[in-house]
Structure formats: structure tokens, C-alpha cells
């Protein structure tokens, strides 16, 4: 089996596995990460989102082979309790979730948005998150949290 190499949360990573397996499956079962969640397996809910390069993508329908040479960030690489990303601080400050299962994917979509557009409008945030589903109805809090993080980041 060919070895697939990519950069995962800043660390060079090599995986020996069937290249047709989904990146999500590899991240969770081979690499022990639980940030990206399984939701639908069809790229329709966004709960498995990770950042590849600068874009948020569904990892559940991304084959492992397509990760070759890519720079991949999961929720684990976004920040930590000790060194939180402004988005993580903002989601706590706005209490921006109910069950929180969709939140890891939403944080990744939001982080990708802020890399591309550091000062989005509320409508731009909604557009960027439109492929992420939240069943609990925490949407407005989530939008507020992303705008709060953007303000904090642009204030330096």
C-alpha cells in the first residue's frame, strides 16, 4: 500500500492505509483524533470539516489519496485550552452551542473564512457556514461568536 504523507496540525504525518478510505476515517481511527465528527458520510452536514490548505472541506468524502502533500488542520490544531484560538474563546464567551456536536466542523469553516476574510459581515459569515448544519438552533450565537473573534483578531 502506498504511504500517504501530509502535514497534520503542523506535524509531518505518514499513513499506510487504503488510499480510498476517507480522510475522516483515517483521522479518527488511525490517528486518534476526535475533533472531526462523523455526521452523514456524504458531505452534506459539515460536522467533519477540516481545513485543507486554506479551505474548509468535508473530510468524510475526501479520499485519503487526495490529502497527499496537503496541509491539514483539525480542531485539535486550531488551539488549546492553554493557547486558545480567538474563535474558541469567542464560542465560549457567546455560549455558542447547545449539544456542540456540529461545533468542531463549524469552527473549522469559520477559521477558514477568517483566513480569507478577516473582517466578514454577518451575511458573509452566514454564507460561509451555509453548508454546516446545526440542529439545535444555535446559529445566531455562532454568527455572533465568529464576528467577535474577527473583531478580536483585527484588533491584534
Amino acid at each position: 500500500m502506498p504511504q500517504i504523507r501530509f502535514r497534520l496540525n503542523g506535524t509531518e504525518t505518514a499513513v499506510d492505509a487504503d488510499p480510498e478510505r476517507s480522510l475522516l476515517d483515517i483521522l479518527r481511527s488511525e490517528l486518534g483524533l476526535t475533533g472531526p465528527h462523523f455526521g452523514c458520510g456524504a458531505g452534506e452536514c459539515g460536522t467533519c470539516n477540516v481545513i485543507v490548505g486554506n479551505r474548509a472541506v468535508n473530510s468524510c468524502d475526501m479520499p485519503l489519496w487526495s490529502a497527499e502533500g496537503k496541509d491539514i488542520t483539525t480542531l485539535e490544531g486550531l488551539g488549546s485550552a492553554e493557547r486558545p484560538h480567538p474563535l474558541q474563546r469567542a464560542f465560549i464567551a457567546e455560549q455558542a452551542m447547545q449539544c456542540g456536536y456540529c461545533i468542531s466542523g463549524i469552527l473549522m469553516s469559520a477559521a477558514a473564512l477568517l483566513r480569507q476574510n478577516p473582517s466578514p459581515s454577518a451575511d458573509e459569515v452566514k454564507a460561509a457556514l451555509d453548508r454546516n448544519l446545526c440542529r439545535c438552533g444555535s446559529h445566531n450565537r455562532i454568527v455572533r461568536a465568529v464576528l467577535r473573534a474577527a473583531r478580536e483578531m483585527s484588533a491584534g
Binding site: T74, L75, I92, G100, I103
Partner: peptide, 8 residues
């Protein structure tokens, strides 16, 4: 429960 959920 929220910090655990944003810090994976």
C-alpha cells in the same frame, strides 16, 4: 461542558 467541546 462547553470548553471541552471547543477544545476537542
Amino acid at each position: 461542558d462547553i470548553p471541552g467541546k471547543v477544545f476537542a
